[in-house]
Design a protein around this nucleic acid. Structure first.
Lengths: 250, 250
DNA sequence: AGTTCGTATTTCGTATGCGAAACACGGTAT
DNA sequence: ATACCGTGTTTCGCATACGAAATACGAACT
């Protein structure tokens, strides 16, 4: 008896995946500071799990460049380095330009609706002024482009890069003057895509990425920016612990 | 007393890293077939280590797309899928073009010497006719471009992608007719870079990647290509075991 | 007091132990 | 003969145990 068409249910998120997500998000929004040391025991205690899944999650994060070996003394959160962000933006210029071009070739009517909505929501976030929302809206819009471009690997790769960028972004978005301008550019790109004008979409996306690169560079001081051992421990603990119940930092 | 300027010695490769390398190379050169199931116990036994480092290595390989979840039944080697390679080549077109352009802007005299030597060695490999050597020479040349381009992240990213490509490449290089042509193209790109002609380098690199994409597509059948459970076990075992002290690629 | 050596502590990498969930198989009933 | 069901086996995720290597600290000696 064929039970209709039914696929096997997905094996729920493992502790490894949950640890990965928890640590990654803590790094990306700054609750774990650049250069801060990561202690497996401590992370495990916060997450209320054993060291095993924490270690596996850290292995993956290391391979993705979010954490870095610290000699024989474990791992540290990757510092914010100018050259690294320059490198990311160089790649982003090439990939965003391509993405915009492909998106303009493949944009459907339904996609267009989504795009317009994202621009609207972005404008609203600018009004509201919360920095976290601005970052989310920015990411959402660019992810829309990647999705419409129809290349899953592109979306996946850029998701990683954007997680790196998020770490430096709250600095950039400090000055509210730029915010309107950013969304003017976004709107231009989206319109070019919706109107299926690949050339223009590509050109605008390239210019947008270029500008963003300039802004990043000036926002990151020459040397690595690692604030040594700030006591942001409390908010970290709360955010990492799935049940909210946390051992005090001692 | 400062003992001259002496940096701390690097902590040797861990079992995790060695397991990662061993499994990755087995996947990339086909000793582990697409779709083949990966058993932690078995891999651990072959490598003569415990399951722990094997599991960590597999976590990383999974995050990089070389292995894939197989429901609740562990992991399998990622099948060779047409869409995936199309996606890779789409990215590669953008990134190779950019890399060639940047390399042409930054190529030094010493770089030029290396580039010419790589072309020479490539031609020699074509003469010799060993497929493994051809793949290595191809990779080496493209890695040279990435390195000269001066973007470490680009080199790292493309290394990953090339490891994926290697899996499909031996199929392509079957027909020896193409080989000469490939190295004609390589030579053209290298010359453009050495002569510091970014426009031409970019154009040639784009065309080269485009052609390669076409070749890949026709070499991969429409559906996933997983040969079920071939008995390549013996060569695998020898190659994975650390005691097997010969690197064939060297 | 300053320096140096030895010991305790930290912390990772690795191995092993344990339980749960899915598969494989053989026996039984129809 | 075929369908079904219960048991044994496999295999993974997670926890814990153990040893090595490095640091940190304190005591003793000059």
């Amino acid at each position: 008896m064929p039970h209709a068409k039914m696929e096997s249910i997905a094996p729920g998120p493992t502790l490894i995946e949950r640890a990965y997500e928890a640590i990654l998000s803590a790094i990306c929004d700054g609750r774990l500071q650049p250069g801060e040391r990561l202690n497996q025991d401590e992370l495990a205690a916060r997450l209320q799990i054993s060291r095993q899944p924490v270690g596996q999650a850290l292995s993956v994060l290391k391979s993705q460049g979010f954490v870095r070996d610290n000699g024989r003394r474990g791992l540290i959160v990757a510092p914010l380095e100018r050259e690294f962000f320059l490198a990311i933006y160089e790649l982003r210029e090439a990939l965003d330009a391509m993405a915009a071009r492909l998106a303009a070739e493949r944009c459907s009517a339904a996609d267009a609706v989504d795009g317009r909505r994202l621009v609207f929501q972005g404008r609203r976030s600018v009004q509201a002024g919360r920095v976290d929302d601005l970052i989310s809206a920015d990411m959402d819009l660019h992810m829309w482009i990647y999705r419409v471009a129809g290349n899953p690997l592109l979306a996946e790769t850029m998701t990683l890069y954007w997680n790196h960028l998020r770490r430096a972004m709250s600095e950039i978005l400090r000055q509210p003057s730029r915010r309107e301008h950013i969304w003017d550019e976004h709107e231009g790109i989206v319109h070019a895509i919706i109107e299926r004008d690949p050339k223009r979409a590509e050109k605008l996306a390239l210019a947008h990425a270029s500008e963003a690169a300039d802004r990043i560079v000036e926002s990151i001081p020459a040397a690595g920016l690692e604030k040594p051992t700030v006591k942001a421990r409390d908010s970290l603990g709360r955010a990492l612990a799935p049940s909210g119940r946390r051992k005090s930092t001692a």
